[in-house]
Simulated assay, not measured.
Amino acid sequence: MRTTIVKSLICAAAFLQIESTVYAQSKTADYFKNWPKGTSPKQIGDRVANRFIETPHPNFGRPTPPARITYPEVCAWYGSLTFARESNNKGLTKKLAKRFEPLFGEEAKLVPLPDHVDHTVFGAVPLELYMQTKQPKYLTMGQHMADKQWGPPEGPRVKPESHEFYKQGFTWQTRLWIDDMFMITAVQAQAYRATGDPKYIERAAREMVFYLDKLQRPNGLFYHAPDVPFFWGRGDGWMAAGMAELLSSLPQNNPNRERIMQGYKTMMSSLLKYQAESGMWRQLIDDPESWPETSSTGMFTFAMITGVKNGWLEKDTYGPAARKGWLALVSYIDENADVREVCQGTNKKNDRQYYLDRERITGDMHGQAPVLWCATALLR
């Protein structure tokens, strides 16, 4: 009888241990589930992607049409397409492809020349369309952009240093601006995903290490420029998102992976300290008097979601931060599916007040895009 009781107690203890483990695992998994009404990535992604489809080609807030497709539109287009893929919404993909079709005909002049990082990133969109539709015309256009970025320097934008960067094996479009590490990474990683040719991801990784070695501060963050000692939110956001994009596809045996992962984790650790109680990050990351800004919050949240999902970041530390960031971000989306409190396009300036006084825009593609990236990452 006593033996039976002991066995029963042992079984009960084992069961409770299993239950406790299952509960702990399910509790952890819930960081990216059980969303409050109206805040799920599927609902938000549908709203913001459809808003993108109905929005004319933007021109940095100006009333006139752009001379070429701008990089904020590219980022939102790319985000809409990846969201369509992850949500298995083939109808949305068709609508996004329809928006692109005039660029092969009557709107061909709007296709940027691959002569600058802000122009060449356009190639990420046709490469994504190729992967979803398998139509060769998209691959031809996108791969041309990626190849030109590492081709010989040419055109009026070439500077003396362009040739030096090219000789060292970097893209001649190198500027050592922090924005570059999303613009370059996005198109090169996409070319790798579309073709399987490792040269694209390898060159992007080598470029990323160059930027990390030159620009990352000891705390993991990045000044807007070497001569501008301010941690501007969206500028750092480009780096965070670029590293997350690159690491998502960079092979485990790539010799630069460890260095990039180190830079990424150091940055994420620092960002964790500066997240406001509301879940937002600020226009100047480390300035408590600075205003909560949505484009940077979206980019940092995307980078953290990606890290938790891939096991690069400790889930019980970064999972709650990423969840808080998402819920804070979507609270800034208005009834038109436009994101509020987006910092306007911003050049560098060695003046704190300059950053604090930047115009706060509603519906700017700088803010729409990261919401779509986050929705995509949450659905992966």
Results as ranks from 00 to 15, higher is better:
Thr3Gly: 06
Thr3Pro: 05
Thr4Trp: 13
Ile5Lys: 05
Ser8Trp: 11
Leu9Met: 06
Thr28Glu: 14
Ser40Asn: 06
Gly45Arg: 02
Val48Glu: 01
Ala49Asn: 01
Ala49Leu: 04
Asn50Ala: 02
Pro56Ser: 06
His57Leu: 12
His57Tyr: 13
Asn59Gln: 15
Pro65Tyr: 08
Pro65Gln: 13
Arg68Leu: 11
Ile69Leu: 08
Pro72Met: 10
Ala76Thr: 14
Phe83Gly: 01
Phe83Trp: 08
Ser87Arg: 02
Asn88Pro: 00
Asn88Glu: 10
Thr93Ala: 03
Leu96Val: 06
Ala97Asp: 12
Glu101Arg: 05
Lys109Ile: 06
Leu110Trp: 05
Val111His: 01
Pro112Gly: 08
Pro114Cys: 06
Asp118Val: 12
Asp118Tyr: 02
Phe122Ala: 03
Ala124Trp: 09
Glu128Ile: 05
Thr133Cys: 05
Gln135Leu: 09
Leu139Tyr: 05
Lys159Glu: 10
Lys159Thr: 15
Pro160Ala: 03
Glu161Val: 13
Gln168Asn: 11
Gln173Arg: 01
Leu176Asn: 09
Asp180Thr: 10
Asp180His: 00
Ala186Met: 07
Ala189Ile: 10
Ala189Leu: 08
Tyr192His: 06
Thr195Asn: 03
Asp197Leu: 00
Met208Ile: 13
Val209Ser: 01
Phe222Pro: 00
His224Ile: 11
Val228Met: 04
Phe230Pro: 00
Asp236Thr: 07
Gly237Pro: 11
Ala240Asn: 08
Ala240Met: 08
Leu247Gln: 07
Ser249Arg: 08
Pro251Tyr: 08
Asn256Glu: 15
Arg257Val: 11
Arg259Met: 08
Arg259Asp: 07
Met261Lys: 09
Gln262His: 09
Gly263Lys: 02
Tyr264Thr: 15
Met267Arg: 00
Ser270Gly: 14
Leu271Trp: 03
Met280Tyr: 06
Trp281Phe: 14
Leu284Asn: 06
Ile285Gln: 01
Glu289Val: 06
Ser296Gly: 15
Thr297Pro: 01
Phe302Gly: 02
Met304His: 03
Gly311Thr: 07
Trp312Arg: 03
Leu313Gly: 02
Glu314Val: 06
Asp316His: 01
Ala322Asn: 04
Ala328Phe: 12
Leu329Thr: 11
Ser331Tyr: 04
Asp334Thr: 00
Ala337Arg: 01
Val339Gly: 01
Glu341Met: 11
Val342Pro: 02
Val342Glu: 04
Gln344Leu: 05
Lys348Met: 14
Tyr355Trp: 10
Gly363Ser: 08
Leu372Lys: 01
Trp373Gly: 01
Thr376Ile: 04
